[in-house]
Write a protein that binds this DNA or RNA. Structure first.
Lengths: 348, 348
DNA sequence: CTGTTAGCGCATTCAG
DNA sequence: CTGAATGCGCTAACAG
């Protein structure tokens, strides 16, 4: 191993005086104190006299001292790193959610390592192993459907983890999220209350998402024969929404409303309907799920269900940090979503 | 410090036999070999006999051995962590880009730590310091506009970094991206070639984005009085696109085409135009920038400029890893974007 | 091919 | 309030 030799091949680094970046020992020498004292002030211990503290701080500044995170992690057995595994980050509510987690973690001086599982349990397991092997202290997962091996690994190593985007007390892992079942039921009731008796429901792949499954269950529980519900499964993107509408139109059945289990699908629905010459909400009502930032700006503004994505990210991150730092238990938390009534649903 | 004591308060962890997770010494003991040998096979050294290797592997499996990343990082002075700072992750091409980086890094057993700067140099600097203090070995930035202090920090510590989403050889830092100026010029030429003589250009905040500035420069350079260009600055989201169109309509000038410097703005444009009773492209043409995944599914399908976001993410990640591992230089790379002609632009 | 050993940089006892 | 000494778990010389 070449110790102390730093190779430098960046053309942009030429011509500058590169003082050596200080380690804790250098700072101690510079300040004429011991490394223990330096460590104390750097870590905010209170048992250091004010003059000493200032001497150390000055030395730190002079040497541009940044504690080596690996050494610190090795010594404390804490990496200050939390992992999040999400099914996808593109065109979805997850971007919002991840942004919130990142921010909350950042404020607490933690870092986020992220992996994308593509809604695949095997990929997820692989990612989790890698993340663990990179020092993640805790995991944020989406939904409750994960491989047994993943759960076993967490259990075996006592890795704190929380399940998000769902609300399911049957689960033994801590859960912070919203109740997809109840929310979908509310959506159906909302539509029924406005006189819709035959509703087409467009949703993403059931096999890949227990959130979608929960929503379907909820919709079904709210209908009980009335209103009549027909389900159309499709891919979870704008194209999928369009295809589903085409199919639904060809089915020949007369729907007065379309409920989409994602705003992205609703956007596709808007375009397919426009193409087919239907006006929203006069000819047919459309309702979404997610309340993405553009949902209120489509025409007509989309009636949808607001999901507390930001709040969820914030809550998960802060609870996990509290747990890691003070061993506070993770308290299962139900966050509320709500129907945002705009202009895309008509009363019949 | 409490060493070796792992606190466990997860209700879900009860009832399972928690064998102690092995360290390298435990594995060595289990296999009846030295820790050096274990280290060798774990790190894929070739100078280990096959039988020995197998004994080690078996012991690793038995003890569920995962090398401690902090110890490894401390010893090798390498964290296998790369940082990316992006302006935003929501509703944008950055989600796609980050997904690509994550994937490429993941394949090489690196991890990505991400921060969101909200297009603010001060926030960015703060984030970079934190990320550095968390062990990031290299940085991926967006654009070329960064605080001097950030550049100095990188120079002083010899931190490899690459600027992305732009192409600017005047810059001293390595750059991997696309040529916003040229692409915007092409867009204007494309429109001009189809007979558009008066074009409204809608774009996001210039002050926050040198990419937007470059696009404006490019558009201007391609017009030279003809076609006539009017610029409308707005917020970079669907609402912004709508507002800009409202303003542009109120201006009273007759535009035959609207060029949006982002597909997100184009989406807002679609809705504003629909609201105002204009048909695309019969009454007015619309062109975008980004080629987001839904762009081909809006109605009419959006003519736009494809940005190589995925390829860029992949390229940056792999070059950075090669640089870190083999000291290969980062080669400035221009990736090509191209006009995707669909149905939203009319020939006059 | 395998084992012994010396740090990596830091936090934290334990003395003083 | 401050300092000296120990070890976190691992990699990489170096010896055999």
């Amino acid at each position: 191993m070449m110790r102390g030799v730093s190779i430098q091949i960046h053309s942009w680094a030429g011509g500058c005086t590169l003082r050596k970046i200080g380690k804790i020992r250098d700072v101690a020498k510079e300040a004429g104190l011991s490394i223990a004292t330096v460590s104390r002030v750097v870590n905010g211990a209170t048992n250091v006299s004010q003059p000493t503290r200032e001497r150390v701080l000055k030395a730190c500044a002079k040497l541009d001292y940044v504690p080596n995170p690996a050494a610190r992690a090795l010594s404390t057995n804490k990496s200050r790193t939390i992992a999040a595994i999400i099914p996808t980050i593109e065109h979805s509510v997850f971007a919002k959610y991840i942004a919130a987690i990142e921010q909350a973690l950042s404020e607490r001086n933690y870092s986020l390592v992220m992996a994308i599982s593509n809604a695949d349990e095997i990929e997820e397991l692989k990612a989790a192993k890698k993340l663990l092997g990179m020092g993640a202290e805790a995991f944020i997962l989406t939904g409750a459907a994960h491989s047994d091996e993943l759960y076993n690994m967490f259990e075996r190593r006592s890795v704190p983890h929380v399940l998000t985007s769902i609300w399911d007390l049957r689960n033994t892992s801590a859960t912070i999220g919203y109740d997809n079942t109840a929310l979908a039921a509310q959506a159906v009731e909302f539509l029924a209350a406005r006189g819709h008796a035959r509703i087409a429901v467009i949703h993403g792949p059931l096999a890949q998402s227990d959130r979608t499954q929960a929503r379907k269950t909820g919709a079904l529980s709210a209908s009980q024969e009335h209103p009549a519900l027909d389900f159309f499964e499709t891919t979870l993107n704008v194209a999928g929404g369009k295809h589903a509408v085409h199919k639904l139109l060809r089915s020949g059945r007369q729907y007065t409303a379309i409920l989409c289990f994602s705003d992205v699908l609703a956007l596709g629905t808007y375009f397919a309907l426009a193409q087919a010459g239907f006006r929203i909400p006069d000819d047919i009502s459309v309702m979404g799920f997610d309340n993405l930032d553009w949902s209120e700006h489509v025409v007509p503004p989309l009636t949808t269900i607001n999901l507390p994505a930001r709040r969820m990210g914030y809550e998960v991150a802060s609870q996990l940090v509290r747990h890691l730092e003070n061993s506070e238990p993770i308290v299962p938390t139900l966050l509320s979503g709500q129907i945002i009534e705009r202009r895309s649903v008509h009363r019949i």
